[in-house]
Nucleic acid binder design. Structure first.
Length: 622
RNA sequence: CGGGGUGUAGCGCAGCUUGGUUAGCGCGCUUGACUGGGGGUCAAGAGGUCGCAGGUUCGAAUCCUGUCACCCCGACCA
């Protein structure tokens, strides 16, 4: 049945709510798709729900085709489950926790690894039942630090999450096979949703695991940074992106005598640069400074050094050091341990046997360096690696430290060796890629490609999880040899409402007049606009609507309101229905109506009898 | 959690500095007339605990204190 505009709720607005910054947020509000209830909480109005359902239908179709089976798991989850897997801490404040009447804590699930693993553990006993891929479409909760951009970063959102279980990585029924299937299904889903997307290598984050890809819609409003090689053979997000081989040289001759500079109240790179310019009349660029960050790993300290204009990447640091427990040290603790936070320099490691130095290649160079003096309110200039650290430190200290480090419980040599690193005992210092990649860096393919940075919206993410959850929750399955094994898992997520926002944010997703939907996820495919909903115009509208709805994949909205034509046209453009049929007296007298694509400049006159055929024809291209 | 800002009609805002009758404007809404193919015109209306609580004062939207909500910039996040 076609929908009558007057019978549904489409509260369009001429003015943009002040709080909306990005096009998708503004237009979804103005066009009456969503309504804000609180920070990061939205109602989905009839149009919004229809689009959401269309996306879900495509997802369900492709999940079925990929052999995944739908379940529905609870939003309310015992917080103990999260404690068992260690993710209560890992998620931290992002995890919504509510108390029930017995003041027991429950988590509002931001994802369902714990629950699905428990479920599978309850019923799957034999290798014969594997592989198994289950999925759901559920409301998820994240207590976002800062909800933003409307539906793009809300505290409550719809997610499709699939989980697969296997006993092996490769071979038939292995994780690789299902990962590939889901990966391919994602490509089809996003294509069918009309989204331009790119696939990038990603860090798996707090979910953990070994391999991971993100599906991104390129958009200047995206919150994620993607780096792509201009050779077209590598793409990754900024957390993951490796950097091609860079040379370094620690043995460079000093540029001058190490000299203290009084820099009162200048703890930051920018502060120091500004201070030099203002008070010393010297131009000091951030790339001539060394950023020295104090990290902690149990009872050892880790000094990470990157160039002043670069950013430390903790994930890389963890991999390079083979320790997952590395974090930036809280200021207070670092101060207690003798680090003058804000004024630390690499030579703080010289006389300490509890400090390991890890230096990014771009910081491991000769030349003029300014860095912290390890004294409050002081920096040094003419810092030199060879003179001020290597010679001063001596090899024995370093060897001892290295041994201490590698004997630490939790040290993962295999992981440490996968990172690009160089731990030559003669160099005394661990040199490794520990910073975020940026525009202009060499591609890790080392094929003389250069990385270029763009922004994107993450709409999908696939991971290989391994046995993290089955181990933590002790879920086992009997294999062919009657041995208990922890199955390995894959995990595959899609942000359903983000697809709507991304469809609008994409290049062709909107213009000055409103939304331009891909036909597959528009709330209606056809909008019929009789100039007046009376007499012959009304009859024609009703008949056409009935005819069109009988066709596959077509649903119709009739603008039956007693509004001026101009109002109807403006609203039509705003809500973005792909096809509009305008019925007016003059054309109808000739047995014709006007057919116009949302994207077309002008309407075509089409004979009534030919409308269905023309509609089908036009839709193919939308 | 830091820094900044805003709460006045459904939406967008003015009024607040320098307290003073019935708190305004635009859009939207209701009724009527004229109109009728890209947000029309005129007329008459409805609609407000001025975020909340306390204080100062003869008198508070306006000054003070507290509190809540929301937004923006930082925070390594689907």
């Amino acid at each position: 049945m076609p929908t009558l505009w007057s019978q549904t709720l489409i509260p369009t607005a001429r003015q943009v709510p002040a709080e909306a910054e990005v096009p998708s947020h503004q237009l979804l509000l103005r066009a009456g798709y969503i309504h804000k209830l609180g920070s990061g909480i939205y109602d989905y109005l009839p149009l919004g729900v229809r689009s959401l359902h269309k996306v879900m239908a495509i997802i369900r179709d492709e999940m079925a085709a990929a052999g995944a089976v739908e379940v529905f798991m609870p939003t309310l989850q015992p917080v103990e489950l999260w404690e068992q897997t260690g993710r209560r801490t890992a998620y931290g404040d992002n995890l919504f926790v509510v108390r029930d009447r017995h003041s027991r804590e429950q988590a509002l699930g931001p994802t369902h690894e714990e629950v699905i693993t428990t479920l599978v553990g309850a019923y799957v006993e034999s290798y014969k039942q594997l592989p198994l891929t289950l999925y759901q479409i559920q409301t998820k909760f994240r207590d976002e630090f800062r909800p933003r951009f409307g539906i793009l970063r809300s505290r409550e959102f719809q997610m499709k999450d699939a989980y697969s279980f296997h006993l092996a990585l490769d071979g038939p029924g292995g994780l690789d096979e299902t990962y590939r299937k889901q990966f391919d299904a994602y490509c089809r889903i996003f294509k069918r949703c009309g989204l331009p997307y790119e696939i990038v290598e990603a860090e798996s984050g707090p979910i953990g695991g070994s391999a991971s890809h993100e599906f991104m819609v390129p958009s200047p409003t995206g919150e994620d940074v993607i780096l792509k090689s201009d050779q077209g053979n590598y793409a990754a997000n900024v957390e993951k992106c490796e950097i091609g081989t860079r040379t370094y040289d620690l043995a460079f001759a000093p540029t001058g005598t190490l000299e203290d500079v009084h820099t009162p109240s200048c703890p930051g790179i920018d502060d120091v640069a500004a201070f030099f310019k203002k008070n010393l009349k010297t131009k000091l660029k951030p790339q001539n400074m060394l950023k020295t960050l104090v990290c902690r790993a149990g009872n050892l300290w880790l000094i990470a050094v990157v160039r002043g204009d670069h950013e430390l990447n903790l994930a890389k640091l963890r991999v390079v050091c083979g320790m997952h427990e590395i974090d930036l040290a809280p200021d207070a603790e670092a101060r207690d341990a003798g680090f003058t936070i804000g004024f630390v320099g690499p030579h703080v490691a010289v006389n300490r046997d509890d400090v390991l130095l890890v230096v990014d290649p771009d910081a491991a160079q000769g030349g003029f360096w300014v860095t912290g003096a390890n004294k409050i309110d002081h920096h040094v200039k003419h810092f030199n690696w060879q003179r001020d650290v290597i010679t001063a430190r001596g090899q024995r200290l370093v060897r001892k430290l290295k041994a201490a480090w590698e004997n630490k419980p939790g040290f993962d040599r295999a992981s440490a060796m996968t990172g690009q690193r160089d731990w030559d005992p003669d160099q005394e210092i661990l040199i490794a890629d520990i910073r975020n990649a940026g525009d202009g860096d060499p591609s890790p393919q080392n094929d003389s490609g250069t990385l270029r940075a763009t922004k994107g919206i993450e709409i999908g993410h696939v991971f290989k999880l391994g046995d993290k959850y089955t181990k933590a929750l002790d879920v086992t399955v009997l294999d062919e040899g009657n041995q208990r094994k922890h199955p390995i898992m894959g995990c595959y997520g899609i942000g359903v409402n983000r697809i709507l926002a991304a469809a609008i944010e994409r290049d062709a997703g909107h213009d000055d007049h409103g939304i331009i939907w891909p036909a597959s996820i528009a709330p209606y495919t056809v909008l019929i606009t009789p100039i007046k909903y009376e007499g012959a115009l009304r009859d024609t509208a009703d008949q056409l609507a009935a005819q069109l709805e009988a066709l596959p994949g077509i649903d119709v909205l009739i603008d039956d309101r007693d509004e001026r034509a101009g109002v109807k046209f403006k609203d039509a453009d705003l809500i973005g229905i792909p096809l509009r049929i305008t019925i007016g007296d003059k054309a109808l007298a000739n047995g014709q109506v006007e057919l116009k694509a949302r994207t077309a400049q002008k309407a075509d006159l089409v004979a009534l009898a030919d409308v269905p055929q023309h509609v089908m024809q036009l839709l193919k291209g939308l």
